[in-house]
Structures are given as C-alpha cells and as structure tokens.
Design a protein around this nucleic acid. Structure first.
Length: 638
RNA sequence: GCUGCUAUAGCUCAGCCGGUAGAGCACCUCCUUGGUAAGGAGGAGGUCGUGGGUUCGAUUCCCGCUAGCAGCUCCA
C-alpha cells in the first residue's frame, strides 16, 4: 500500500492505515471489542491525543486506546465534562465568562467570571447539559493562530490574557455545536458519551488563585460513563456524610465544640468513656513494652522555647502568656519538657534504651479556616514517647517500635498500614554525616528486618533527622498519617543532655521521638468514622442496654444492669415508660452492641433475651453466661 | 487567614412583600403495662448569634463583628 502508515496498537498488534488516516481509522482497523468506549489515544511517549488526530502524529507509532477506566481516559472524560458544563452555563448565562476548567481528584470544576450561582441555577445547568448530551454533538479540534484566537475570544478578558501567554503555533480550541472553548485538549469524540454527571457544589475562587485578582464562581461536578457508576459514587458520598464524626459525636453525646473556645473540643461523659478505653489499652500496652510514663506542664517559661528552637521555628503556631510579668509559652510539643525530666539526674548507658511516654496536651494555633471537628483542632493530646539510646541501639529500638505500632493499629481494626521512610534533606540539616548514615541505616534496616514494605522519600526528612511515617487506611479507603518515628540529633544537643557511657565518658544520647495514634482526638475521630459509631464492645460507651418489657420488671432490669456493671461491662437499663419496640429501636439507633430484653419469663429463670446489633435474636440465656461471654469479648478486644 | 454560604427552641428545620415566631424530634406530666425498629393526650421551652444603621416599627432590609459549613496545589 503506497504511503501506508503502520501503527502498533497495544494489546492488539500492528494496524496499517492509509496516509492521512486518523486514529479513528486505526481504531476501526484494530477492531477492538470495546471500541465504542474508547475516548482517546495514549502515545508511547506519554501524550494523550484525540481520536481525530492524524495517525502520523509524533510519537504515535506505538499507541494505546484509552477508556474511562484508564487514568488518561478518565482525565479526558472529566475535562470534556467541564466543557459540557461550560457550554450549558454560557448558553443559560450569556454574560458568564469561562476561564479555566481542569480535572481534579474528585471530578472537575470550571471557574466563571459571573454572578454567584444558586442551587436552582445548578439544576438548570444540569438540565441543559443533559440536552447537549442527547444531541450527541461532535467535538472538533481547531488549530488557531494567536490573532485568530484573540479575535475569537475578544469578549472574554480571561481567555485573552491566557492567549497572550501562549506560544504562537500551539494554540487550539475545541468546538461542540455553537460552543467554542480555548483548550489544549484532548477531548472525547462526541458529547453523547458524557452520559452521567452531577454538579456537586459552587464555591468562590480567584482568577489565577490570587486573592488580589477578580472573584470567580467555581462550579464543581463529577461525571461517569453510566448512571450506575454515578449512583455508586453518590452513595459513597452519602455514606461518608453519615459517618461524619461531628454528627455522630453530637448524636452519641461524645463531645462538643463551643463558641467560647474555637477549635477546643469539650469531652462529654460518653466521649470520656470511649477516650479512656483507648487510653487504658494504650497504657497497658506501653507497660508491656517497658515504657515509663511522665506528664510535663502545659505552660513553661519562654526561655525553654528559645533553647529548644521552637521560638525560632514554630513561634507563629504558639500561644504566649506571662506569669508575674515573666514571659511563658503554652507548649506546642512535649519534647522540651521531656528533656527537663531526663536531665533531672545523670543517666547511665545501662538504663538504655530509656523509653518515656507522655500523653501530652499540646496547643497549636491553626488557621481558623482549617479547623475541622476532631480532625483539626487547636488543642490535642499527643501519644508521645521519647526514647533515649546509644547510636548502636537505634536499629533495635526502631524495630521494636515498628512491631508495637502494627500491634496497636491491628487492635483498633486497622490492618492496612502504609509506611514511608524519609531521608536526609540536601541542605540545611544539622548532625554529622556519621550520625545521619547510622540513623538512616538503622531505620531502613529495621524496616527490612520486619519485612515491612515502605515507600522511600529521599530528602523528605526533618532538618534534625530521618523519620518513618505510618499511614492507616480506614474502611472508606481514606488514608490517615498517624504514627511517626523520628530520630533527633538536635534536641539532646541543644539541651546538653548526656549519659555516662561504658568507658566512663559523658556522651550525648540519641533521642527518638515517637507517636502512634498521633493526636488522641483526631484518632478518635478516625475511629468514629471507621466504625460509623458502631464501636466494638470494648470501646463502645454504651455496649449493653437492658430493656424491661414493662415497668414491673424494672427491678430485675436494674439487677441485670448492676450485675453487668460489676463485671466491668458498660450497661444501662432503659427504664422509660415506653413499649419494647420503641426501646429496641432507640437502642439500635444508639449503636448498642447488645440489647438484653427482660420480662416475666427472664426474671423467673434468671436469664436475659439477647438481641445483637445486627438484629440477631439469640434467645434467652442465663445471665451468668452472658456476663462471661461479654467479658471475654471485651478482653479479646474483638 | 482569604472567598462564598449559613446562624430562629436541646436537635433538625419552616417563617412570603418589615407589624416582636412555628413544626417534628427530644424534655416534663398524665393515660397506657406493653415481648423485639416510633402507643396516646397535655405541657413547658425562644433577647430570632452579636453590635450598629435604615424605619413609626427589624427575626425579616443594610453594615461591622463572632462562630459554623464548604472551598482555597490543580493553569486554556
């Protein structure tokens, strides 16, 4: 075939098409089973092109056809969705000036120079978008000179500004029906494939993300090739809303926030029961691992923070006060206090590794706009620990800590843990080359010894030492950084902390900072959302409710509740003047693990009728047996 | 911090064009004494976030403040 082109199609093989053919022809020649789903083409050199592009395009000798399920295809799909929205918006609001409309992690957005949109406007825009999809307009690429582009977008100052910044010869636009948008592309071939979409929110934004520039109106949306996937996505969003720990915290009376203390959580009795259950387990585990526990003051002389370096590096996040006219600061971290405890007497290498834990309440000034329930607060309790050891002990200490970390996460039901190792930054570090090499080798060696898979972040360590971070994944697939192990060459030196070594000389110990849950408050927020308030028995503030079927069995119900409480089981009797059905319903909504129904038969036989949170009716069981089984379940932290 | 939206009973919310407020749930009392997801009746409960302005009169309109919510890397 004269002038034929040969294109290697991934997953298919070579396809020959005549000169001047487009990828659409290549696709037809390849006869792929999912040809109708193909949105664009990805070249071997990493570019994505339109199906209408010439098959001779640079780097296109090897290509892959991409669909929505392909990352490149997803981007094209969402970007075309943004154009679809812009077409609808400009159709309904002729004065709206489209600016930019990129793809983001959760869908896409488009910023318009326009008056604010109302929720009703969004509905109209969605309806117009649906019409355009039905019309199944062809999406065409148009190459433009700068002058042509300036002429075409003369009425849109934002586009004009963008065109001025673009190099001549690489300016393009896309047309679908009567709508033309300046765009690099690529795009889906026809509007008809953009079947399922939802405009999710409106927000203010600035031109070029600069608050000094014009205020724009941003509309966010999400789109899918079919309604089922959109419905699935919306259902997941709804589920996340239902799991919102702020809502559950209010409903289950765990904690509250008040105007009088922005970003400062108030713990209620039920929340304290949950929190204490976490802390009791934490203490028990730390005792097992040979930790000692200390507590250091919240307010300390400002001079300490000069010594520690926080005044230089962290001042803008700290709160200051004065006592008898002497400047003091509220602690944002626990280590300086911990070092004062360490320095209170001479230490010997024989005590090492010295593991000192502190549930330390720290205060940090966070910007008001970033506060978010328990996830981002201004006062929180770090489950901190400082481990003092010799350089030789680093690896063993880290190895033990990694094992401890996984044990703790596993107990709370987090088995998917991602680990990252961050090493020495290129510039601005303190500590000797030898120290860094030893510490990095210790951290990495420990990870390998524990056969932990990890991601290496070269140069991402702190200026004072390398670190390992731990991210737990919750049941919604969200990742949370909680744990950290950081080697610190700075602090012991600044505080002139020493120990007496085997050879009788005074040496500076290695200090390892370590947190597992991170912030107790935030971790409890994560727990709430992970479990959607349906806590395991050992954590649930109200694990058991005793439900008498009528008032006359209140005494027996009280007896049952008291028996459970005496055995360390958190139980309440529902003695309200309500019917059983109502009590069952309320107990269910309160996420109680077990409902124990008691009436004449049970009172007579000394039994309780057990109903589980899953709605299972276990029938009447002897009270003593139930107590034993629940105690076992609590002990096992199931 | 910035932008937008919001602020009415303990909670969730309604309240038109300006004439000092309403529902459901929760709470209290009474009736009902019931066997596995809401029994009935009655009652109490609000300085309409806060400070100003406009007005004869402001929960309502305007401005400031405070707080809450969302967004604030994403470059045609």
């Amino acid at each position: 075939m004269a002038g034929a082109i040969r294109v290697e199609v991934e997953g298919h093989g070579p396809v020959e098409v005549p000169a001047g053919a487009t990828f659409r022809d290549v696709l037809a020649g390849a006869a792929l089973p999912a040809a109708a789903d193909v949105l664009a083409v990805a070249t071997a050199d990493g570019r994505t092109l339109d199906l209408s592009a010439a098959a001779t395009a640079a780097g296109a000798a090897r290509v892959r056809f991409v669909t929505f399920d392909d990352e490149a295809g997803l981007d094209v799909f969402r970007h075309s969705s943004a154009h679809l929205m812009a077409q609808a918006v400009t159709g309904l609001f002729p004065n709206a000036k489209p600016t930019i409309g990129p793809v983001v992690e959760e869908g896409f957005y488009y910023d318009f120079g326009a008056d604010p949109f109302t929720p009703e406007d969004l509905e109209r825009i969605e309806a117009r978008m649906a019409e355009i999809v039905t019309q199944d307009l062809a999406v065409e690429r148009i190459e433009l000179t700068r002058d042509e582009a300036l002429g075409l977008f003369a009425d849109n100052p934002f586009k004009v500004e963008m065109i001025r910044d673009l190099p001549e010869g690489s300016i393009s636009a896309y047309r679908q029906g009567g709508f033309i948008d300046l765009c690099r592309g690529p795009h889906v071939p026809r509007t008809g494939v953009l079947r399922a979409f939802k405009l999710t929110k409106v927000a203010g934004a600035y031109w070029r993300a600069d608050a000094r520039n014009a205020q724009l109106q941003r509309i966010y949306g999400i789109s899918f090739p079919d309604a089922a996937r959109l419905a699935d996505h919306l259902r997941r969003l709804e589920e996340a809303r239902e799991r919102d720990h702020r809502r559950i915290g209010q409903e289950m009376e765990l904690f509250s926030f008040h105007d009088e203390g922005q970003g400062f959580p108030f713990w209620h009795p039920k929340g304290m029961v949950l929190r204490n259950a976490v802390v009791e387990y934490w203490r028990e585990a730390h005792r097992r691992y040979g930790y000692q526990e200390i507590q250091t003051p919240i307010i300390l002389n400002e001079a300490l923070w000069h010594t520690s370096g926080h005044w230089d590096h962290y001042r803008r996040n700290m709160y200051f006060t004065s006592i008898d006219d002497v400047p003091h600061a509220v602690k944002p971290m626990n280590c300086p206090g911990g070092l004062l405890v360490y320095k209170n007497r001479l230490h010997s290498y024989r005590e090492f590794p010295l593991k000192v834990a502190e549930l330390g309440l720290v205060h940090r000034h966070e910007l008001s706009g970033v506060l978010h329930g328990l996830f981002r607060v201004r006062a929180f309790t770090q489950d901190d620990a400082h481990i003092f050891c010799t350089p030789e002990q680093v690896r063993a200490v880290v190895e033990e800590t990694i094992g401890f970390m996984f044990e703790i996460y596993g107990t709370f039901g987090f088995r998917d843990v991602a680990v990252e190792l961050s090493t020495r930054p290129l510039v601005g570090t303190i500590g000797s080359d030898e120290n860094w090499a030893n510490a990095e080798a210790g951290l990495e060696g420990a990870l390998r010894a524990k056969a932990v898979e990890f991601k290496l972040n070269p140069g991402d360590g702190a200026f004072y030492g390398p670190k390992i971070d731990f991210h737990i994944r919750d049941c919604m697939g969200r990742s949370w950084q909680c744990g950290t192990i950081q080697v610190d060459f700075s602090m012991p030196d600044r505080f002139r902390a020493t120990y007496e070594a085997e050879d009788g000389t005074r040496k500076v110990p290695v200090m390892i900072h370590r947190a597992m849950l991170g912030s107790l408050e935030r971790f409890i927020g994560i727990l709430i959302e992970h479990h959607a308030g349906r806590f395991p028995l050992w954590l649930n503030p109200t694990g058991v409710k005793v439900l008498p079927v009528a008032d006359k069995f209140a005494d027996y119900a009280r007896h049952v509740a008291a028996t459970l409480a005496a055995a360390g089981i958190r139980a309440e009797a529902d003695l309200r003047n309500e019917k059983l059905g109502r009590k069952v319903r309320d107990a269910q909504l309160a996420h109680v693990n077990y409902q124990l129904v008691v009436g004449g038969r049970e009172a007579e036989a000394g039994t309780v009728a057990v109903r589980t949170r899953a709605g299972e009716d276990k029938g009447a069981l002897p009270l003593a047996e139930v107590v034993a089984r629940l105690k076992e379940e609590i002990a096992g932290k199931e």
